[in-house]
């Protein structure tokens, strides 16, 4: 066991981990941050996406020890400081961009990473960026719409 320290959602945290402890395990089991989900074991579904030093990564495919000293943001850290939904979160609710909610944390984290890189993405760019986030409920239609809306663009991408 070794000690690992990092900043999670702005708060310094540390804990004892094994070499094989994944970041997602450290977050869920060690920190009780269960908003980050595990939906596969082949690093494809994206339910576990968090930001490490500002970049979207799959927290199931990075060891906790590799995040030593890093700034980690999870879905629990995405709301506004007053607790209200952030622009992206609000857009997901407004446009029904989630159903069962399981993939949603990863979707929101990927959407935030996309908009940080590309503030006005096209529909095609959004769909391409979500390559690593699988949703089984929504057919992606309203997720795409929510991200377009969050970027301040017209959401009339399809007939209602």
């Amino acid at each position: 066991m070794t000690k690992v320290s990092m900043t999670v959602n702005g708060k310094p945290v540390s804990g004892e981990v094994e070499g094989r402890t994944l970041l997602v395990q450290f977050l869920r089991e060690g920190q009780g941050l269960t908003g980050t989900h595990v939906g596969c074991d082949t690093s494809q579904c994206g339910a576990c996406v968090v930001h490490v030093d500002g970049k979207a990564v799959k927290s199931c495919t990075i060891f906790a020890a590799e995040a030593e000293g890093a700034e980690v943001t999870t879905i629990e850290g995405m709301a506004n400081p007053d607790g209200s939904l952030s622009t992206i979160q609000q857009a997901f609710q407004d446009h029904h961009g989630l159903q069962c909610g399981f993939c949603t944390p990863g979707m929101v984290m990927s959407a935030a990473a996309l908009l940080a890189e590309n503030p006005k993405p096209t529909e095609a760019e959004i769909r391409d960026y979500l390559e690593g986030n699988i949703c089984r409920c929504t057919g992606y239609h309203n997720i795409v719409k929510a991200i377009l809306a969050a970027s301040g663009q017209d959401v009339a991408v399809a007939a209602e």
Partner: peptide, 9 residues
């Protein structure tokens, strides 16, 4: 290659 999160690592 892969997807954006994979490309970051």
């Amino acid at each position: 290659i892969g997807d954006p999160a994979v490309r970051n690592r």
